[in-house]
């Protein structure tokens, strides 16, 4: 009996799924994550990953390049620039809420807010700014807020993504929660984010190439032909959740904040390429 127990304990220690979770090490995770893709697609350079699904088909890439000659997101960027520059009723403006007046800072988001202990995406920061000045928050998925974020992101074009996970228990917990969300299977179809965007990355779901998770956040907000307008990263999260037949989280939920934190951090060092265009 004793021997049987000893064997069970030994087996449990050996099985990777049953091993106690290792100490959180975002930097090591980042290295393993980027390394995984570089081993799988040795011909792609790191910055190529911001082109997502268009790395895998010359035909789709040519069509995409053609679309980009008259970028479908340019209306959103223009509208966003106008909204961004409009003064609030109290005389303040968006620029007053952000470092460097909000120009060229998108690569630093999502950020951990030490005061609230929560992760703040650029969209949520825009809403916090509005609320501080007596305005109602906007929808985090599309419309005016997506336009403003598209404009702000356009001023960061090419800047390397630089998400910071400070040495704060709450920040590390948020990162770990986002990581768990990303790898956990959910919905009736039993897919995790990673099922499609890590394991099956570069393969086709019907006619569509699945974008690798590496670099996937760099082009948001995106104009999607399927949507017919510009949407934020959280809009895509909601769409993916529904597709796997899972009830989506709330746009400003901790689940989505933390997921964006983990996922964007995994692309640290890659250039901002948003707003982007996708089919």
């Amino acid at each position: 009996m004793k021997r049987a127990w000893a064997m069970i304990v030994a087996l449990a220690t050996l099985a990777p799924g049953l091993a106690p979770p290792a100490k959180a090490d975002p930097a090591a995770d980042l290295k393993a994550f980027q390394g995984y893709f570089q081993t799988r697609f040795p011909t792609l350079a790191l910055q190529d990953y911001v082109n997502g699904p268009y790395n895998f088909s010359a035909n789709d890439r040519a069509q995409w390049k053609q679309i980009l000659e008259f970028p479908p997101y340019s209306f959103a960027v223009d509208a966003g620039k106008t909204a961004f520059g409009t003064k609030f009723p109290d005389g303040a403006d968006y620029a007053s809420c952000f470092p460097r007046g909000g120009i060229g800072i998108a690569q630093d988001y999502p950020k951990f807010d030490e005061k609230t202990g929560k992760v703040v995406t650029l969209g949520i920061a825009v809403n916090e700014c509005r609320e501080r000045h007596g305005l109602k928050p906007l929808s985090l998925t599309k419309g005016e807020l997506a336009d403003i974020v598209a404009y702000m992101t356009s001023t960061s074009d090419g800047k390397p993504i630089h998400v910071v996970i400070p040495n704060d228990k709450r920040a590390i917990a948020a990162y770990e929660a986002g990581k768990e969300y990303f790898y956990s299977r959910r919905g009736q179809l039993n897919f995790s984010c990673a099922s499609c965007h890590v394991q099956a990355a570069g393969k086709r779901l019907r006619g569509q190439y699945l974008a690798p998770a590496l670099g996937i956040t760099a082009s948001f907000p995106v104009y999607r032909s399927k949507w017919g307008d510009v949407g934020t990263l959280v809009r895509r999260f909601i769409g993916c959740n529904k597709k796997v037949r899972s009830v989506p989280a709330k746009p400003d939920s901790a689940a989505y904040r933390d997921l964006a934190y983990f996922l964007t951090y995994m692309s640290n060092g890659l250039p901002i390429a948003g707003p982007g265009a996708r089919s």
């Binding site: 990777p16 799924g17 091993a19 393993a32 994550f33 768990e180 956990s184 959910r186 995790s192």
Partner: peptide, 13 residues
């Protein structure tokens, strides 16, 4: 949901 609480780690590169 309950099984994923431990199984998710097997999918991490």
């Amino acid at each position: 949901a309950r099984s994923q609480k431990r199984l998710w780690q097997n999918a991490v590169p």
